[in-house]
Design a protein around this nucleic acid. Structure first.
Lengths: 246, 246
DNA sequence: GCAAGTTGTCTATGTTACTAGACAACTCGA
DNA sequence: TCGAGTTGTCTAGTAACATAGACAACTTGC
């Protein structure tokens, strides 16, 4: 057997075989062909599909494992790792910055924007009277297109008129606040509890039924210590790893 | 000398050295570091810059030469090829189609639009009386953003009122005519002469002083054989290669 | 317990990539 | 005409890539 069929796919000159296999597998992970926690096909089958030797597949998998995308288990199979985003809760907590630091691209999507009266809980958080008009923004936040959290933020309607519209354009809370002159803000309070995904979570976060969500309530204040925004966000638990450095 | 410093740049795993060098050079060609017709640095110098052996550079250059991006001349040097766009003159001659076939993206830009009276030459071409009102469109046409030709097209103002405005939006003669109900048209006459770039050519076509231009006069007719548009375009000679298949 | 199927590791072999050096063939300007 | 500088070609050696086969170690389901 001296025939070397190489690859049947398009052949990018100057790219090693194992790298092409690795790219192919990574693409499968990225587009959902191989879901998080699912098992990859066996090395022999992969080798067969790509038309390469099993050792070449092993090299490709080793490269992916090095980057933490998959985890090989002897005797069982190779599994797609759900890379958790390290999510440090600090005084400076910015979704886009945190996601960016993990080498992913952050994006936001406005689900709904509305004006509503503050209920007792939200009013207490923002230090306003219950019934005060608030801007409410429901948004989905993603990392490399993968939904990370879905949540609601409340601002004072007086201080941030039309905030929803601004967020829809800027897709970032930080930029939205900056648009209204809030140069900086810091996290003053964070509360975290776990829950089981309901139908809404499952839809927005693309979670399995029964998957875990982490509910994060937060209050951010401006430089003078006045509350500017409070949020309640539901995170896909399997995709994040919260840390609290003190 | 057994030290192999490899590359000092970022190392994409699984990509061969020669390919990285080729990509680096191609980037230089693309961003203008190495202009069309200019000479690349010598193989030894390139090898030095990338920290690789001269033979590796030769492999990279061979790959670029294969694709027609550069041309090596023994004893002299390696030069950046100005890839000429094959421009077949046929009954169906459409700038955007022709450019698209060469793997480039066609674009058009309206320079000026006006209503003017037909002079004797244009009137004869469009088979109208001298003095007839015509729409005149001056446009620059580009391939992948590189200017290919700058020219003027004349239509009957009666038949195509406001053609300039339509062209400004659609950026295509074909689409402009279609907007006025001309479903198809064909080239009935093409005349081609060469000239030396004047100041205007040099500006619009981004040519050197003294560079060659090809002046193309054409008449297109509709399905009934009636002239619908005539054009005079000045092509950057170094960027096109006209062919007349019979 | 056992068999089937998995990943991990070993040896072996051929091919390709890269480096190294030398020289030929050619161009160009002084 | 000459010499410096260029690309083209050759030989040679080392390292990495890829294939091939065999077996060990382990998991899983029956």
């Amino acid at each position: 057997m001296t025939a070397h069929p190489k690859s049947n796919a398009a052949e990018p000159a100057g790219v090693t075989l194992w790298r092409r296999v690795a790219d192919g597998l990574e693409r499968g992970i990225g587009d959902g062909t191989y879901a998080a926690h699912s098992r990859l096909p066996g090395e022999i089958e992969i080798a067969d599909r790509f038309g390469v030797n099993r050792h070449t597949v092993r090299r490709a998998i080793a490269a992916l494992a090095e980057r933490g995308l998959v985890r090989a288990e002897r005797g069982s199979g190779t599994y797609v790792e759900a890379r958790r985003i390290p999510y440090p809760i600090r005084t400076r907590t910015r979704f886009s910055e945190i996601v960016g630091r993990s080498g992913r691209e952050a994006s936001g999507r406005l689900i709904a924007g509305a004006i509503e009266a503050a209920d007792r809980d939200i009013a207490r958080r923002l230090e306003v009277k219950p019934g005060t008009e608030l801007v409410r923004i429901d948004a989905l936040r993603q990392a490399d297109g993968v939904p990370i959290c879905v949540g609601t933020s409340w601002f004072s309607a007086e201080q941030f008129p039309g905030a929803a519209k601004v967020y829809a354009a800027k897709r970032s809370i930080t930029k939205t606040l900056a648009h209204f002159g809030v140069r900086d803000y810091r996290r003053s309070s964070t509360r975290l509890v776990a829950a089981i995904a309901d139908a809404s979570d499952a839809m927005w976060l693309n979670l399995e039924r029964g998957g875990a969500v982490l509910v994060v309530d937060s209050i951010d204040v401006d430089q003078e210590g006045r509350p500017v925004v409070t949020s309640r966000a539901r995170f896909a638990a399997e995709r994040v790893e919260f840390t609290f450095d003190s």
